[in-house]
């Protein structure tokens, strides 16, 4: 087991419009993608992000060795309760997951 940040090449998160955030996990090989894919089912990531699992979309993109997650923002971008206007810090939360 190791923290996700030590296993993959890069994790980024960003707004996908004002109402969604998307997370891209870039792996260096099909083996790493398989390991990450197996370790990060929707339920686990949704729990970590305190989301209803039905709101978390998950995409496996083998041609790019990427695992992608998208979810509606808890607060729309830039609204009173939003603490991170561009949604880029969410990626840091996933970095620490053990895979």
């Amino acid at each position: 087991m190791a923290e996700l940040r030590h296993v993959v090449r890069r994790i980024r998160s960003k707004n996908a419009g004002p109402f969604w955030i998307t997370i891209d996990i870039f792996c260096d090989s099909t083996d790493v993608l398989a390991r990450v894919t197996a370790a990060l089912p929707v339920e686990r990531v949704a729990g970590h992000l305190q989301l209803d699992a039905s709101h978390l979309k998950r995409f496996e993109i083998p041609t790019l060795n990427v695992l992608k997650f998208s979810f509606p923002r808890p607060h729309p971008q830039g609204s009173l309760r939003d603490r991170d206007m561009h949604g880029a810090q969410v990626a840091l939360l996933l970095e620490l997951l053990e895979v």
């Binding site: 996908a16 990427v66 992608k68």
Partner: peptide, 10 residues
């Protein structure tokens, strides 16, 4: 990879 960028569906 740019198809992923700021796009909720790849």
């Amino acid at each position: 990879a740019h198809m992923l960028y700021e796009n909720s569906d790849p």
